[in-house]
C-alpha cells in the first residue's frame, strides 16, 4: 500500500559515480541544497529511486515504440549490470522491426548479455516474465507488448510485482497501442520522443525523450522528465545535465533550473522546432 504521507520531498538521493554500473543509494533525512549541479543530481536520483525493484509500466503511442524501447533499455541498463532478459511479442517484428543488436551496442549495451524470448501471445509473454521475475541473477527484464491483453489484469500484474519485488528485480513492461489499465505496477510512465539538439551540419543529436510519470505507488506526484542520452555515462540524464559538446544551439539550463526539485512538476519547456504536424501520430 502506498503511504500517502511519504513524498519524495525531504529525501535526498546521491548518485555515486556516473558509470554504467552506478549504484543509486538513498539516504534519508538530508535536506537538499540548491546548488545547480546538486539539483540535477537529485533529479537524476529521483528517477533512479522511482525505479525500485518491482514491476514498472511504460506506455507509448504505437509510432513512438522505438523511444519506448530506448527508454526501457536505458533505464534498466543504468541501474544494474548483468544479463538482461527481453521478452518480445512476435507481432512487434512486423510493427516496429526486430531488435537490432548493433543498435543496442551503439546504445551502450553489450548484446552478449541479452537473452531474447519471442512470445507468440500475451500468455507466453507473461509466463516468461514471471519466470524472469523469479531469477535474482538478472539485471532486469523487459516485457514488450503491442496492443491490448485482457490476460494482463490486476491479478496478473500483482503476481509479477510480488515475484519481482521478492527477488529484488526490476521488471519493465513496455506497452504500445493500448490505454493504461489498472495494475499493481510501482510506477507508470508515458514516453514520447522529443527533438534532439542538432549536431553541426544539422545532424540529429543524442536521443531525447520525454518520460511523464503518470502514477507512482510511492506517492511521488506526476512529473515530467526530459531525458537525454549521455553516451559517456551510458545512460539517460535529465536534459541539461551533461550538455553535449557539439551542441549547435546555445542551450541554457533554464528549463531545468525553473523546474521545482520534486513533487509537482510542470511540463518542462523543451527546445524544439515548431512544426504543424507535431501532434500527429502515425499508425
Amino acid at each position: 500500500m502506498p503511504e500517502p504521507t511519504t513524498r519524495l520531498r525531504g529525501r535526498s538521493l546521491f548518485v555515486s559515480g556516473a558509470g554504467q554500473d552506478s549504484i543509486v543509494r538513498a539516504s534519508t533525512l538530508v535536506r537538499p541544497t540548491f546548488a545547480d549541479s546538486e539539483k540535477q543530481a537529485n533529479r537524476a536520483g529521483v528517477l533512479g529511486a522511482l525505479f525500485r525493484p518491482g514491476l514498472h509500466e511504460a506506455y507509448a503511442a504505437p509510432a513512438d515504440h522505438a523511444a519506448l524501447v530506448g527508454f526501457g533499455l536505458g533505464v534498466l541498463r543504468s541501474l544494474r549490470s548483468g544479463p538482461l532478459l527481453w521478452v518480445r511479442h512476435t507481432f512487434l517484428e512486423s510493427e516496429t522491426g526486430g531488435l537490432y543488436p548493433p543498435g543496442l551496442r551503439a546504445f551502450g549495451f553489450d548484446p552478449a548479455s541479452l537473452i531474447l524470448v519471442r512470445a507468440g501471445n500475451p500468455r507466453d509473454l507473461l509466463q516468461a516474465g514471471l519466470e524472469a521475475a523469479r531469477c535474482k541473477a538478472l539485471a532486469g527484464a523487459l516485457l514488450e507488448l503491442n496492443g491490448t491483453a485482457p490476460i494482463y489484469d490486476l491479478a496478473a500484474s500483482r503476481r509479477l510485482m510480488l515475484a519481482a519485488r521478492t527477488n529484488e528485480l526490476r521488471l519493465l513492461f513496455l506497452r504500445s497501442a493500448v490505454t493504461p489499465v489498472p495494475s499493481a505496477a510501482e510506477t507508470r510512465w508515458q514516453v514520447r520522443p522529443l527533438a534532439s539538439r542538432a549536431l553541426p551540419a544539422n545532424a540529429p543529436g543524442f536521443p531525447v525523450l520525454e518520460a511523464r510519470l503518470l502514477r507512482s505507488k510511492s506517492g511521488a506526484e506526476p512529473s515530467n522528465f526530459v531525458l537525454e542520452w549521455n553516451p559517456d555515462a551510458g545512460k539517460f540524464e535529465e536534459r541539461g545535465h551533461g550538455a553535449s559538446a557539439g551542441s549547435a544551439e546555445a542551450h541554457t539550463d533554464k528549463d531545468i533550473g525553473a523546474a521545482p526539485l520534486s513533487g509537482s512538476v510542470v511540463s518542462l519547456p523543451v527546445h524544439r522546432q515548431a512544426a504543424p504536424g507535431r501532434q500527429r501520430r502515425t499508425g
Binding site: A66, L73, L99, A106, P204, G205, D232
Partner: peptide, 17 residues
C-alpha cells in the same frame, strides 16, 4: 561486437525492419 562510438549519437537503430 564493435566498440560504440563515445562522442556520437548511436549510428545504428534499435530496431531493424
Amino acid at each position: 561486437w564493435p566498440e560504440p562510438e563515445k562522442a556520437a549519437p548511436p549510428a545504428r537503430p534499435l530496431t531493424l525492419f
